[in-house]
Structure formats: C-alpha cells, structure tokens
Amino acid sequence: MFTKPIHTKLLYLAILAAALLLPWYVPDAYIFQIVTMSVLYAIAASGMNLILGFTGQVTLAHGAFFGMGAYGVAIMTKAGIVFWLALPVSALIAAFIGLLIGLPTLRTRGAYFAIVTLCFGVIVWIVSGNWIELTGGHNGIFGIPRPSPIPVPFFGQIEFFTQTGMYYLALAVLLLVLFALYRLVYSVFGLTFMAVRNNEPLADSVGINTYATKLVSFVAGCFIAGLAGGMYAAMMGAVSPSAAGYMLTFNFLIFVILGGMATLPGPVVGAFAIPVLMEFMQFLDDYRMLIFGALLIMVIIYFPMGLVGGLRRLNQKVAAWRQQKFPESDHASR
C-alpha cells in the first residue's frame, strides 16, 4: 500500500550512514555544534510539519512550545530532577498547554487558529522575558547539567558530557520521531490528517471527527517541539527568551516550507541545509531574512511542496520519460 521503491530506500540508508559517521569527518567543533543544533531543529520542524503540512493548520507558536520544553528541562534539572524524567515531563507539559490552546481555537476553520497561535507565541516570549522568579528574565537560566550517564550492563555506560554524545542522543530522538511520524502519516489514520487539510466539510461528512483529528495532530506536534526544546536546554547548558521567541517559529516555518511541506524528509532537509548554507554565507547576514522572506513567498507560489516536492516531481518526470523510452522497465515511483 505505502511502499517505497528500492533506490529511494538505498538513498535513505546512505544518508543514515553519513549521519552516523558524522563525528569522524566533521572535526571542527563549531561546525559540529551547528550540525547538532540542526538535528534538534529538524525534530521540531518535523513536528510543525505534522500540524502545518499534513493537517493544514497554520501554527505560529511552535517556537513557544520548543521554549516550554527548554525551560521545563532547565528549571527541573536545576531543581535536581534527573534529565531523563525532566525531558518527557517537559514535552508533556508542552503538549498539555497545546491542548489548552487547541481546545477553543481548533473548533473554528481558517484564520483564527493562525492568529491565536501567533499571539500566543508572543505571550510566551514576553512572559519568558519577564517572569524573573521562574525564568530568570532576559538573562535566562545558566548551568543546566548535562544528562546523567546511562549504565549499560557488561559494557559500562553511555555518557553525554561530550558534544559527540549529545549528537548521538539528538540523532536517536530524531530517528525515533521520524519513525513515529512515518507510521502515523503513511496509514489510514494519517490519511485522515490529509483529509482534514484537503476538504474539511467532506471529511466531516464521511464520519471523521475533524476537530479531534486536528487536536491530536496539534498536541502531538507540540509534544515533539517540547522534546526538541528539552534537549536544546541540556545541550546548550543555558536557555534565554530567544529559545521561546517567535523568530524561532519563523525559522521552523522556513525549514518546513523551503524543505518541503507535507513530506517527511522536507523539514529535515530544510533544517540541515539552511543553517549550514548560512554559515558559508556569513557576509549575507544582514540580508538573511530579506532573502528568506522573499524565498518563502516565491516557494509557496511556485513550488508549494518545496525542495523535496520539486525533486519528487522531477523524479516522476524522469521515470515517465524512461518508461516512454524503455517500456519494459517500470520503476514507477511515488
């Protein structure tokens, strides 16, 4: 039903191998740090894509939920709670607050949800900068401990005091999230997300509880954002209001749209390609958002499925051309 052609699978395996071997061929600590951040961004952007791309609900508070995860882990681990408990609890808090926001707003169609989430994102950002007792105000929270080592029988323990350890932790979570999203999206249940995006009145009339579907998608997306934020706090050792800011939301949006909305690889590609590209184009720094703002408009008008969608279309065209020329080999790809 939902199988992929063999050469696509090989490509994914090659990418996975490259990701696993990354610490060996990226010795530069600074670049390595950027790549590790990209893994976290990819997690959060994938969560946003579930809501925005697959379910068609424009959430503009994703940075806020990332921030809740980050502050959650920061506050709890500083209070002595072990990271491995603080992380899921923080993500659950983000999911729960997402539920509270979604309950009144997802009942409506169209613009309300986008507007309310945008405003909510700003509220969280303002509160994180002003609630000094809880968040440390504009200075934020410092000295967040790294995750404690995991003991492994007969082997010793897995430590996270190095950047490499954190990288593998982040990578593991990214793979887990992608695996879960893969299962959710490529299934009959996942089709209901797309049904809501595509034609809500029809979805309603064939017995799909569209309100509940939107809620599930939004809460799951917020949970994923919280997860990414929690790991960010442990990795950076510090959080400040910019980790909950609305600019972060716009960055996630850029990753999702330019990478490819409603495709699983899209946000991941965006989250890796864009920050790395920016490092090589430091001289453009002032013009960064000027370029990305214009790109966002152009991509959404001319390539609504972004880079990955464009490549897929190209791939289909090539396959169609091949079939025309060599009718025997039929590698129809999807």
Binding site: V58, L60, A111, A114, F250, L253, I257, D286, Y287, R288, M289, L290, F292, G293, A294, L295, L296, I297, I300, I301
Partner: peptide
C-alpha cells in the same frame, strides 16, 4: 497565510 509571514519577514529586514 505562509506568504503573509514571508512578507512580514521581508519588510522587517
């Protein structure tokens, strides 16, 4: 909606 966010980023920068 997304194009609107794009214009916002463009104008501000």
């Amino acid at each position: 909606f997304i194009a609107a966010v794009g214009s916002l980023l463009f104008l501000e920068s």
